[in-house]
Design a protein around this nucleic acid. Structure first.
Length: 197
DNA sequence: CGACCGATCGTCT
DNA sequence: GACGATCGGTCGA
């Protein structure tokens, strides 16, 4: 079990990186509660030429400035006024690439995860959906701009390997406004994980 | 089951 | 002032 280092995040190929994040483990520590979950679904947002990205065309606002920070930074933003979506900034500084974490499978601290979600029964798809991943792991917009190299939120590699045949690529969800970029196969899913297609 | 709809607010125009 | 990189509840079949 080792923490991913800055050299992992600062590579240039964000689409490949999104693929490699499948199977990695998110570990969060808040208020002495540790929770962890294995990533099973991601989406790549591939820089200023990607119409689906908040940073398309080099858009630089108070919200998106986080995406221009170096790879390994955490980008969280509020969606639909309710959901805190957790993204991993990739590539070097001033190249605004990111990977959205869409789904995971809980590992440690299941009682804490259930509490945060207001649920009582364990289901394999408990952390399916980007808003739910953040909620279950305690990640909020307060974490935007902080680093994955710190200990509050980090990603780990425990040697788990995804069977290549079960790792599928599809278009991204909910980006119809992005024109033909909406068709790019930038979403990755570990299809052996039950409940995700 | 699947389809629909309301929630809720920061961000950008 | 409009609109989301969404979710969960409800309703009808």
């Amino acid at each position: 079990m080792e923490k991913l280092g800055v050299e992992f995040y600062q590579r240039q190929d964000t689409v490949q990186l999104a693929r490699e994040l499948i199977g990695k483990i998110i570990v969060t520590r808040f208020d002495s509660f540790t929770t962890s979950a294995r990533i099973v679904e991601t989406e790549a947002y591939n820089g200023i030429k990607d119409r689906a990205s908040h940073a398309f065309g080099g858009r630089h606002t108070n919200r998106t400035r986080i995406m221009y920070l170096p790879g390994g930074t955490i980008y969280v933003y509020l969606c639909y006024g309710i959901h805190h979506l957790f993204n991993v900034v990739t590539n070097v500084a001033d190249e605004p690439h990111a990977v959205l974490i869409r789904s995971a499978v809980g590992m440690k601290g299941m009682d804490t995860i259930l509490n945060r979600l207001g649920k009582s029964s364990l289901k394999h798809d408990l952390l399916k959906g980007p808003g739910v991943v953040s909620k279950g792991l305690g990640i909020t917009i307060a974490a935007t701009g902080t680093s994955l190299l710190d200990n509050q939120i980090a990603l780990h590699d425990d040697g788990y390997e995804v069977n290549t045949a079960s790792l599928i690529a599809t278009p991204r969800i909910g980006v119809d406004y992005a024109g033909e970029d909406a068709l790019l196969p930038y979403r990755f899913v570990n299809s052996t994980t039950i409940g995700l297609k």
